[in-house]
Amino acid sequence: MHDQRRRREPGETLFGYLLLLMSLAVMAEGSRLQGFDSVSAPGIAPLAAGVVMAMSSLAIILRTRRVVPTEAGFATRIAPRDVALSVLMIALYMALLEPVGFHIATFAFLSALVLYLRRGGPGFALLVALVSVIVVHVVFRMVFTVVLPQGWLLRGLLPPGWLL
């Protein structure tokens, strides 16, 4: 009944079908794990979760069809430029994390994102990035002995067995 207040967001119908697809995948895994065969099989909980997901996503799809759509498009409502570009940068950061290691990837990501979001000079962004990487290194690597991702691209440059 609250749904009457809400309008259909762009892409919501597609999202509903995506959720349904996910539900079916979960159910398939549940049945692969003998969820239908025994009440104590490894697949019983995945199967049950999949069924609940499928039924509720069907209900969601039906409900979505009945509400009025908003006029605005996907690019303004769901993925405005700030969000889209940030997500892109996050994806790039993820991709760089293993090859170049945590320190360099984080420095690059932070300075780029702060520079973009803040729209000021590069000096401040670089400073924020540098200080953050140092603080993280001190707290996590030194005090808590968490060995951060090393980066295999640069492994050759460091002495053998080096732990950054």
Partner: peptide, 17 residues
């Protein structure tokens, strides 16, 4: 504009740890 990038990095390190 500064807090959000920092939150993202903190999330990454925290999860890795």
């Amino acid at each position: 504009s500064v807090l959000i990038p920092l939150i993202l990095v903190l999330s990454v390190v925290g999860t890795y740890a």
